[in-house]
Design a protein around this nucleic acid. Sequence first.
DNA 1: AATGGGCCTTCAAAGAAGTA
DNA 2: TACTTCTTTGAAGGCCCATT
Length: 226
Amino acid sequence: MYNEEQLIKAIEQSFKMYKLYGARSTAKLKPIHKFVADTLTEIYGKSFEVHFMGDETKEMTVDGKYYPKNIDITVTKNGEVVFCLGIKFVTSNYKQNANNYFENMMGETANIQALGNLSYAQLIILRHETPYYKKNETETPSKIEIVNDKDIQKYLNLVFDYPQAHRPNYIGIQVINVNEVANKVALTNLDNSFSAETSKLLNGKLSLTNFFKEISEYKDFLITKE
DNA sequence: AATGGGCCTTCAAAGAAGTA
DNA sequence: TACTTCTTTGAAGGCCCATT
């Protein structure tokens, strides 16, 4: 099941790779993707297959309602897709691109869930203090952006919307603090950083503990249909 | 088996628009 | 008018596949 320590280690590894190889390298993706894939493998068990981008493995192309798309993590049973999950780990310049991230995620979700027979989940990792870099100045940030309630609100609006194709069935959000010098990652103390209400939701409904719990329950449901 | 063009995807970054 | 947010554009990596 979900292991918080492992998550932090995976994010730390991903962040290291990001610093080492840059934003464009897939090296950044692999540790965190592997962590999620491993967690899903544990949840789903031997009769399911988990596809993701690893050193030996590739992402799966899923036929969406509108177009085929590579999905970060795909769970299949006998080759048939039963569950999809997308991951986003933003390391810089968040506010400038926040709408793009959100809209892309909705589009991807709709493309999959509009098929009608499978579930899509989105895992989002944000830095509470996110550096903003200008081009060719990737060493010293020109400012630090604070991820706040408003940045989270759009995701709350979405996850509590009534069920329709573009609403992911599961959203998990983890806000982190990164020590750039030591390459250390810590989970943000939400109570000090967000309103009481937002904090409560981030600690509850949107927490990764609950995220994987709900995914696990969905798997239990899938089994009952066999 | 190597080379390289074309295309897709992701992650920014610049400039525009909005707002206090 | 300075700061924030939004929209559009660009850059780079990787994959597919034709050509050699």
